[in-house]
């Protein structure tokens, strides 16, 4: 959180030259993949986690998938409701209307 806050302050004040910020997407992608590599390695190098996976893995996978599917389903159903209400209040606010239409496009 502090890291994000520090970044927000720097971005807000425009402290970084554009030449630097143009590297951010590439750097982000690199760090994201590094983080995932480390996550994979943590599982791969831990006999304890693998023992658990062998005994509880199937149940865990079913529960995990069900929680993801459930949350995606309920969110997909309620998202239009959230959006429609936003449209009503956005009538008076062109900026907000634009923001909401950006959201609903995808």
């Amino acid at each position: 959180m502090m890291a994000a806050l520090l970044g927000a302050i720097i971005g807000w004040r425009g402290l970084l030259p554009n030449r630097w910020t143009s590297y951010i997407p590439k750097l982000s992608r690199g760090f994201l993949l590094l983080m995932l590599f480390a996550l994979g390695a943590r599982v791969g190098a831990s006999p304890e986690v693998q023992a658990h996976l062998a005994s509880l893995g199937f149940r865990a996978l079913v529960i995990s998938l069900a929680t993801i599917l459930g949350s995606v389903l309920v969110t997909a159903i309620t998202a239009p409701l959230l959006r429609r209400r936003s449209f009503q209040s956005a009538d008076t606010n062109a900026d907000a209307a634009m923001a909401m239409s950006n959201l609903s496009q995808d």
């Binding site: 994000a4 971005g11 951010i24 750097l27 983080m35």
Partner: peptide
């Protein structure tokens, strides 16, 4: 490694949101 990568990523997101 995970922590450093995560902090770097959050820092970048912060820059983006701030901009």
């Amino acid at each position: 490694i995970t922590l450093v990568a995560l902090y770097a990523l959050l820092f970048f997101i912060g820059i983006d949101l701030g901009r």
